[in-house]
Computed example of a mutant assay.
Amino acid sequence: MRARNERLVLSLVRRHQALAKSEIARMTGLSAQTVSVIMRLLEKDGLLLRGEPVRGKVGQPSVPMRLNPDGAFFFGLKVGRRSTELVLTDFVGNVRQRERRTYDYPTPNATLDFSRESLGKVMSSMSPESKSRIAGLGIAMPFYLWDWAKTLQVPQEKMDPWRASDLKADLALSCNMPVFLQNDATAACGAELVFGPADGPRDFLYFYVGFFIGGGVVLNGSIFSGRGNAGALGPLPVPDDAGGVKPLIDVASLYVLERAITTAGATSHSLWESTEHWDVPKAQLENWLNKTASGIAYAIVSSCSLIDFECVKIDGWMPPDIKAHLVELVENKLSEVNLTGLERPLVLAGAVGPDARSLGAASLPLSERYLSEA
């Protein structure tokens, strides 16, 4: 019961940035004495920091408490189709250190070697106190990687080793910490839930535009994963240019843009090197944005026919200005779709940005140990 109450308190403080004991007691229904004991212990453990007293009210001044960024640390490993990244985050989601490697396609051995080397490098730079506060490693990666050899334009035998690979188990043997695994798009959705706006919607549909588009479903403040694959938005059928239908993944994914750029005789390297700026042909980019927006709009309508989402969030591996333009285009495309019988959802840009998959991976051990579905 004590552990549950501590997680509840930490979740509320995270959501509201800072809270006084009296506010937590009111929100939880716990007695003032119980809350006082819990917060004193959390402060002693280095998880909470005491703020300046707030005066001007009747009685004793209230003292807001906030999360201590140095209270706990988490590793997040993102395994993508074009790059692998390891981040170290603190208790409030700041990225403290980062290691990244790009490639033409991922292999189990190279991914494992990169992960071990990067973990060793980052941990060697941490103080003994900080290392003692590492709570775990989360992995965000596409499931069934071997199924995508054709789309990656890689010989099938190069991807088949993933069938027998167990990256989670291999890393668990290598590092002395708990290891967690989640689909990369679902993990990105988790980052939006944990590190996004505290006053955000409790129910929303989430799209993450990466090499392949994917997403997640959030209901009542929690990710709904069903039997493990709910919210896999890529297979949703959407109209194509020829009067037929295609899976959303073949319309709104970055690999479609990459292929259009290379077909035009230009280079697409900047797509994967940085999200500060893309040096890509404007014609191919605008064409892809329009088709992506149309595909996402139709996917939104299909999804809202099943669950009346109050909000849709769109994020991805892209510069902020391009993401803002995509959100605007999706809004415009929704205006052209028949929404009879449906409530039109609010469409917003995701708050986390390109780091969503890495931060989502790091949020796995954070959520497991310190958060509650408050």
Rank of each mutant, 00 (worst) to 15 (best):
M1G: 14
E6S: 12
R7C: 14
V9S: 06
V9M: 12
S11G: 13
R14H: 07
K21G: 10
Q33A: 13
T34N: 12
L42R: 06
L47W: 10
G51F: 09
G51Q: 04
R66E: 14
R66M: 14
D70V: 06
F73E: 04
K78W: 05
N94C: 08
R96M: 15
E99H: 05
Y105E: 03
A110I: 01
A110P: 01
E117K: 12
G120P: 00
K121D: 08
V122E: 02
V122D: 06
V122G: 02
S127I: 07
E129Y: 08
K131A: 13
S132D: 14
S132T: 04
R133G: 06
I134V: 15
F143R: 04
T151A: 13
D166E: 01
D166S: 00
F180Q: 00
Q182W: 08
D184F: 00
D184T: 03
A187G: 05
P197E: 13
P197F: 05
L205P: 05
Y208I: 05
V209F: 08
F211M: 02
G216I: 12
N220S: 14
S225P: 06
S225H: 15
G226M: 06
G226R: 08
G228K: 05
L233F: 10
P235A: 07
P239R: 10
D250N: 14
A252H: 09
A252L: 05
R259W: 09
A260S: 12
T262G: 05
T263N: 15
T267F: 10
T267M: 12
W278E: 07
E286Y: 13
N287V: 13
Y298R: 09
A299E: 11
I300H: 09
C304E: 02
S305W: 04
F309P: 02
K313E: 11
D315V: 06
K323P: 01
L326E: 04
E328K: 13
L334I: 08
T340Q: 14
G350P: 02
G353C: 10
P354G: 11
P354Y: 04
L371G: 09
E373A: 15
